Computed example of a mutant assay.
Amino acid sequence: MNSARLVRGAVAATLVALLLSACSSDGDDGVPRSWIRDTYTVSGSRWIDKDTSPSRVSDAIHKHRKALDRSSGGGKRFLRYGDDMVTVSPYRGGSLIEIEDYRNGYRRHQQHLVNWPNPNSQSYRGGGPGEGK
């Protein structure tokens, strides 16, 4: 009996891990989180490039995985990936990279995102899995 419980628990844990990884925005149209993690220096929940400008860093991220939309303003660069966005800001002569939920990022930077869809409008559908339902 105990071994059957262990097997069921292991199968359940594996399924949960698979589901979480499938929703992690590192798919074909999501933020390239693993590439950013492997390419830039981690600093808490952000990443740093000490020597490269925000425009060059955002171009490199976009080149690695095409964003749905791009914008800039206030010295910052913005990349939209479905329900997430990447903000690249000037930081001590280099760049600071942040990944956040699209709604939060839009709220923080909406003055620079004039052509991007407002996530609080009735017509906004995100852009992630199941968009347009």
Rank of each mutant, 00 (worst) to 15 (best):
V57R: 07
V57L: 11
V57Y: 07
S58C: 05
S58H: 03
D59E: 11
A60E: 13
A60N: 11
I61Q: 11
I61W: 12
H62K: 06
H62A: 13
H62P: 00
H62T: 05
H64Q: 14
R65C: 10
A67R: 05
A67N: 03
L68I: 00
L68K: 12
D69H: 05
D69Q: 12
D69A: 14
R70Q: 13
R70L: 05
R70A: 12
S71L: 03
S72H: 11
S72T: 08
S72Q: 10
G73N: 02
G73M: 01
G74V: 00
G74K: 06
G74A: 04
G74W: 03
G74L: 00
G75N: 01
K76Y: 12
K76W: 10
R77H: 15
F78E: 05
F78W: 07
F78Q: 07
F78M: 07
L79D: 01
L79I: 02
R80N: 05
R80E: 03
Y81G: 08
G82Q: 15
G82M: 10
G82D: 14
G82W: 09
G82L: 09
D83Y: 13
D83V: 11
D84V: 03
D84Q: 15
M85G: 04
M85N: 03
V86D: 08
V86Q: 04
V86C: 06
